[in-house]
Amino acid sequence: MKKRLLFFFIFIISLSLHAQKSILSDWHLGISYLGNNLWNPGAQVTGQKLLFDRTISRTNRRDQLKIKHRQIFLDANIGFYYDNPTHWSIFNNYQVQYRRVRKKGRYQNLGIGAGALRTLLPETYNVANGTVSKVKYPGNWHFTPMVSIGIGRLWKRRGTNPWRLQVHTMILTNYNVSFTPLLNIEYGYVFGYHSKEIINEI
């Protein structure tokens, strides 16, 4: 178990370094605390790419120019959580996010996506025909469609951090007789926002 976790963390770190490098090429790195079903602790690394950005300019009754953005992002997530004490889970998923950016860089977003989740079980014994044997790498793969809803704030000026708070539901398919939902809460930061440029307009 320890070795597998070590490999997993090395994988996350290498992905993070890769994503940081990619900031220059329009990918942006985010990192979040992930609370699976609220209190099971975990973390998530997000790579984010802007796919579509529509600017809406409007003048209000006081002749002030108001600019809003409607954006579509691709979120690529990799993460883990610990469902104490029964198992660990690692996951990778992709989401298309619709985002409405408003005054002072505040936004709301809505997303749908899909991915895969692997549960990692502790010490497990297989019993077949009365023979007991220890299972290597016990756990299960699940296809996981998901939806998310969230709020956040983009980078505005020096000293203000971009943050995001999301609630998302992953549906673990082929789980026992049918499926089971996971309700996750996610709070974190996205670094090097490209929105830094567009936010100056808002």
């Binding site: 605390y33 609370g35 602790p41 497990t124 014994y125 016990p138």
Partner: peptide, 26 residues
């Protein structure tokens, strides 16, 4: 802190307070 609190074991193993978790696959 939240991560540490929620992931820590709440009980200390002694001879009378033994705890073991394993899965049986069948």
């Amino acid at each position: 802190g939240m991560m540490v609190i929620s992931s820590c074991s709440w009980e200390v193993d002694t001879a009378e307070k033994f705890y073991d978790l394993f899965y049986v696959e069948r």
